[in-house]
Design a protein around this nucleic acid. Structure first.
Length: 815
DNA sequence: AGCACGCCGACT
DNA sequence: GTCGGCGTGCTC
């Protein structure tokens, strides 16, 4: 194109000081290969760093311009729209461009540069028993050690190495090691022509097995994986070796893709007939995809209304038009049946992306998307960055779920990313939920997004009956058990009839704390100040911190008053399990929580066992609340609705409502009528009451007034700053400084509210103190730039003080 | 981020 | 007098 152009490169460092493009010369031989989005290796000061080309300029206003050292990929990993998206991410969530780029790419992508050293010319003159002598000896003894390794070993060697390189005693050459490797297997190929083949057979007269192998490969004509040749013919590598030596066969390295989900189903499943409501939803979405104009829908359908079938058919229609589709699910490891349905319907056309894949698997799924081998991706949050060329449809299922907010920088919200990409690609976004986030429902009310309601369950299934039990009455009536009379009776009945039961417990961290009934002492983690949780493993009673992992033995007497009234309180899954065994000794129980599901595949295994009816009761934390669909479950019990109602978060009511509604939806999804029993010490709370009646709209009406009154989302957006430091005073000082600057900045702006410096709800985590400052505003556009300046200044000070200041734009939760 | 340059205290 | 502490400043 142009005669001379300089590449603008973002280097991999996540630091505000280098958060801008640097210019590099593009060597002649790479002019063609280098594009926007190309990953390169560049010299940066004394180092070599990975970088991404984000643009080109004809002139660079810098005197010193070095050339690019290496081009790291054949195809640029970032498409131009992803480069643009990275720019947007860094502005919207106030992170560096490097952090934004890295968020877009699979974690295995990053390359590592290393420097090899070689002694050249005459050995240097060194004094015996000196640093130089040690280095020289090391260079002779282990010539393969990289410069980086040597420096890590003895930092004092750094200046010597530099000098020797300058004097020509040492020669440097650099290597680039890719993060995730392309996986290859060894295959065998016979490239002899018929005549040569016949001659070879003659020559091998008595080597029967060798002749067999050679003939097999000659017949195949193409390369066959060595593993398959050996097992097919019962040969061993010693059979193959002479054939290779004689040149009758060649080894070929073949690229393979790791496939975490195995071979696809041979018979693609046919689309199911749609109900009238499904048809209408499908028609609207498919029509919007056709227009190729950005549009967002809220698909609000109760559990069991058949949203998934609408998704599947809308995606099919999008794919037929040659465009690609992204399907997000909250936590894919918990919803294997969604992947299953996609694989059944679309076979090999689906890539799967989630955190439980290995780095290599992620990298390969990503490559399949980038190369255009698939047109559909199903995945968790980060799948929203799938490098497709032309996206037609993006679906976010259970859009209200917290997992759609990334928990480290950049703290992006998948829904916002989807809407930005929709504008880039002219795509349609579908937000699906039975209990939409309040913001989403509000925007639908305001007309910014189109709402489609699917109120009925397919096959006319009834919504389950929900009973709310006032646990205070139970106590007054002398029932001190964790099961109310109603729940106990319900479980007994199901056990007799051979039906199944799901028991649900809110968050385990808040569950079983240890309290002294005499003096009120609560056992806390020394580091985190969070109540410790009681655990019983192999008869050993332990207290554990769920944030840092600290563990100690359960004390026998109170550390404070020395009394012997220390008891564990609340209800952890283990205690409920014990209680279940005591009260219902005949029932099999499967417990699902963080402890029993840590291994790979343990989720799926436990669920399969429950599905096979190996146990009648499934007991678990919120991880069992979503996506489960068991035909034989007719009773769902919530041990205590209160635990989630009293977390210090403005979304507590919304979360509780969503959780209870969702749990209720788990019962009676099939032919058997379902029942839900919710136990609570606050049964009159509106979140509990509206959930009991499954009245989303009424809940929305009520909650939106609450939000309006206290200036919370959707009426304001929240941005939270957290100052973290091992030194409490420093953490506090930085937070105060930031608060002051924000107040000065927004003086006289009554549309902006600053919630002053306060200890974070998790005020001490892993030995570090945490203070929050929260900013509430109406339009980010009006505050983004000023916030950035103030934030960067304060963050720099935080760093100098040995801590850090993190920012969460559009915070969903204040922690 | 890292690495180098540069300016002040305890040692041969 | 030097070695080395880590405080600013730069990296195309």
């Amino acid at each position: 194109m142009s005669s001379k152009r300089f590449a603008e490169v973002i280097v991999e460092l996540r630091s505000a000081q280098v958060d801008r493009p640097f210019h590099y010369e593009v060597p002649e031989h790479w002019q063609e290969q280098v594009q926007i989005g190309t990953r390169v290796l560049v010299p940066f000061g004394p180092r070599r760093l990975e970088g991404y080309i984000v643009g080109f300029s004809l002139a660079a206003d810098v005197s010193k311009i070095k050339p690019i050292l290496e081009v790291l990929d054949d195809e640029p990993p970032l498409t131009p729209d992803l480069v643009d998206l990275a720019g947007w991410l860094s502005e919207r969530y106030l992170c560096t461009k490097a952090a934004a780029v890295q968020a877009l790419l699979p974690s295995g992508m990053r390359a590592k540069a290393s420097t090899k050293l070689r002694l050249a010319g005459d050995p240097p003159f060194v004094l015996p028993a000196s640093l130089e002598a040690d280095l020289l000896q090391s260079l002779y003894q282990s010539p393969n050690k990289t410069k980086e390794q040597l420096i890590a070993e003895r930092p004092e060697w750094r200046p010597i190495l530099r000098a020797w390189v300058a004097e020509g005693i040492l020669e440097e050459s650099y290597r680039v090691k890719q993060g995730a490797q392309v996986k290859t297997i060894t295959a065998l190929q016979c490239s002899l022509d018929s005549a040569a083949f016949q001659a070879a057979l003659e020559e091998l007269s008595r080597a029967k097995k060798q002749k067999e192998v050679l003939a097999y490969l000659f017949d195949q004509g193409v390369a066959v994986p060595m593993k398959d040749v050996l097992s097919e013919l019962g040969a061993s590598s010693s059979t193959v070796k002479p054939l290779l030596e004689k040149g009758y066969l060649q080894k070929v390295e073949q690229e393979v893709l790791r496939d975490p989900y195995g071979i696809a189903h041979e018979q693609p499943e046919q689309p199911l007939p749609l109900t009238e409501l499904q048809r209408s939803a499908y028609d609207q979405i498919a029509a919007a995809v056709d227009t190729q104009k950005p549009e967002t829908f809220l698909l609000q359908g109760v559990t069991g209304s058949g949203k998934t079938e609408v998704y599947l058919q809308a995606i099919a229609s999008c794919v037929e038009q040659g465009r690609q589709a992204i399907m997000l699910v909250p936590e894919i490891a918990l919803t294997p049946q969604m992947v299953e349905r996609f694989k059944k319907r679309f076979g090999d056309d689906v890539a799967v992306m989630h955190s439980r894949l290995s780095a290599g698997e992620k990298f390969d799924e990503w490559r399949r998307i980038r190369q255009g081998d698939v047109t559909i991706v199903v995945g968790a949050r980060s799948a929203i960055f799938a490098p497709f060329r032309s996206i037609g449809l993006m679906i976010i299922d259970e859009e209200h779920e917290v997992s759609y907010k990334q928990d480290d920088h950049p703290k992006y919200l998948a829904r916002e990313v989807a809407m930005y990409r929709a504008r880039q690609h002219g795509a349609t976004v579908v937000l699906g939920s039975a209990t939409p986030a309040l913001e989403t429902r509000w925007w639908a009310h305001q007309g910014q997004i189109r709402r489609i309601e699917m109120g009925e369950r397919v096959m006319g299934q009834r919504l389950p009956k929900v009973k709310v039990i006032d646990m205070r009455n139970e106590l007054h009536e002398g029932n001190r058990s964790m099961f109310s009379k109603a729940l106990k009776k319900g479980i007994e009945e199901r056990l007799e009839k051979g039906e199944q039961i799901i028991l649900f417990l809110n968050r385990r961290g808040f569950a079983t704390f240890v309290l002294c009934r005499s003096c009120g002492y609560v056992a806390r983690c020394r580091e985190c100040e969070i109540p410790l949780t009681f655990h019983k493993a192999r008869g050993l009673e332990q207290l554990r911190c769920h944030y840092c992992g600290y563990a100690e033995r359960m004390p026998e007497t109170c550390p404070d008053c020395k009394g012997d009234h220390v008891r564990h309180f609340g209800t952890g899954t283990q205690r409920v399990e014990e209680e279940l065994h005591r009260v219902f000794p005949q029932a099999g129980v499967i417990r699902m929580d963080v402890d029993t599901t840590s291994g790979k595949g343990s989720h799926a295994e436990l669920l399969q066992r429950f599905r096979n009816q190996e146990a009648q009761i499934l007991l678990g934390t919120q991880m069992i609340a979503k996506g489960l669909d068991f035909p034989n479950v007719t009773l769902v019990g919530v041990i205590s609705a209160d635990t989630s109602l009293f977390v210090p978060d403005f979304r507590a009511a919304e979360r509780t409502f969503q959780l209870l509604t969702q749990v209720a939806g788990r019962a009676g999804r099939h032919l058997l009528p379902g029942e839900v029993v919710v136990q609570s010490y606050n049964p009159q709370h509106y979140a509990v009451q509206f959930a009991k009646k499954q009245e989303y709209e009424n809940f929305f009406q009520h909650e939106i007034r609450v939000r309006y009154g206290v200036h919370n989302p959707p009426f304001r957006e929240l941005t939270a700053f957290t100052s973290v430091n091992t030194d409490e005073d420093a953490a506090l000082r930085i937070a105060r400084t930031l608060e002051d600057r924000l107040r000065t900045l927004f003086q006289g702006r009554d549309d902006i509210i600053i919630l002053g410096t306060s200890p974070a709800p998790l005020s001490r985590l892993q030995g570090k103190y945490r203070f929050n400052v929260v900013l509430k505003y109406i339009r980010f556009k009006q505050v983004g730039d000023p916030i950035r300046t103030v934030y960067l200044e304060a963050a720099h000070e935080a760093q100098k003080a040995g801590g850090y200041l993190s920012i969460d734009v559009n915070a969903q939760m204040i922690l």
